[in-house]
Design a protein around this nucleic acid. Structure first.
Lengths: 244, 244
DNA sequence: AGAATAGTGTCTGTAAGACATTATGAC
DNA sequence: GTCATAATGTCTTACAGACACTATTCT
């Protein structure tokens, strides 16, 4: 492979990489972990799996797997594939959280982990059949505020995730990724309350949301509530251009 | 290496990783790139080096290098070492920006890059002797708003960096990392103006800063200005607890 | 005095917080 | 009717923006 080029002045760049020693440096293993979160029953929940292989056999961990070079997948594609394998959900966006590379974070060998997160609508999850992956014996949706001691540095990852969600929820469309196409004001407010971890006052919340986002009333009403006045169904149209 | 443990109930976890096949998965190369930024002459500038080896020989790029497994360095330690090698500056904090792992971002082989950034005080840089690293023939401080076509995906990295700096400057101590221990109101305002890319009104700026940070007057005055009234020297004491 | 930069005071409009009130369904 | 939740109105206070003004140095 010789990709030598000429510059505008005609100098040859001689960008020959054909005889580059690809093994000049020892390489680390690279994994992609994905934190799958949802808002359900007034809690921010994370999908955890119980490891059935060493290391940390029997401990809870976030789903993840090795980057498979022969598949020629980008990091994001790998995260999307893992999300689909775990939850059956596809077509949802994933976001990169942080990359963890401490020397002894895996007892086997040097492993760099690129952590991603995905926000999913809990009603979609319930319609799917969560299948524990090959290396997992069980799965569990855990309240992010109440997770046990996890495998690897996954407690740190979840802690970083919580901070990131709190920071992003007020200046991105993050909250809407937890909701179905059509939702109510109360559902939207619950997402914000759960992520920000505090109660909000409804009229102020609506005023602020209407200033930040384009929200449309569908004209439909929520169906068969057990009690109280039925609510209007809304649709998210986009983020208002107030960040420029 | 057998790190088998017993649980509280006495079950053996058999966490034996001694016969794990460390080469079960093909590994990518991992590099750490560092964007070294400073505010100088009213501009946000980035330290770029000219590559003297393929690929992209002769192109400008951010400093970086392969993660060296035998050195047992964390990603952050690697970034700090590269910062010191390039600028002679040590003891300054580095921040992780993002991890780039597209399949063909390096023509040689699959390379994952963890990008970091460091904000340095331009007066310290000027006192040091910038030495171009082994694989660089030249270096240059470039205005981030005016960089040429760079090697690899480094234009994307700098673009992401600019967004990150703009987002972080108003809710972290980021701005002070560009300044010496003692600084003036005008210097601080210039840092904000350059990062936010717009003019600010001095009295409003000071009011806001005093609400966000603990700022102390040193009692000293700036020395030998060429013209105008001398200014008070300030010191940064910390971020006020208004984010809770 | 005049130029240049540092630093302060104050007015105004907008947005946030708190809370009172009304509306609409089920029983 | 009562209960429960949805939805709206309004008052007060805090803050952001704009700008006028004063202060201190050098020439």
């Amino acid at each position: 492979m010789n990709i030598s080029k000429k510059t505008a002045e005609g100098h040859e760049l001689l960008d020959d990489v054909s005889n580059y020693d690809k093994d000049a440096y020892e390489k680390p293993s690279v994994t992609v972990d994905i934190c799958i979160c949802t808002v359900d029953e007034g809690e921010l929940k994370i999908l955890m799996i119980k490891r059935k292989n060493p290391p940390f056999r029997g401990k809870w961990a976030s789903p993840g797997g090795f980057l498979e070079i022969p598949k020629k997948e980008s990091l994001e594609k790998t995260a999307l594939r893992e999300l689909k394998e775990e939850t059956g959900v596809k077509g949802i966006s994933v976001h990169q959280l942080y990359t963890y590379g401490d020397v002894n974070r895996d007892p086997r060998m040097r492993v760099i982990t690129v952590a991603y997160y995905a926000c999913v609508d809990s009603s979609v999850i319930k319609a799917q059949n969560i299948k524990a992956a090959d290396d997992a014996s069980e799965y569990c949706w855990m309240n992010i505020k109440d997770v046990p001691k996890l495998a690897f540095d996954h407690n740190k990852i979840l802690s970083d995730l919580y901070v990131r969600l709190q920071g992003r929820v007020t200046y991105s469309d993050l909250a809407f990724q937890f909701l179905p196409e059509e939702f109510t004001w109360t559902e939207l407010q619950t997402v914000f309350e759960v992520i920000l971890d505090r109660k909000l006052i409804a009229p102020n919340f609506r005023r602020k949301i209407l200033g930040l986002y384009d929200i449309e009333e569908t004209g439909k009403m929520s169906e068969a509530p057990t009690k109280g006045r039925p609510s209007k169904l809304l649709r998210f149209k986009g983020v208002k251009d107030v960040f420029s």
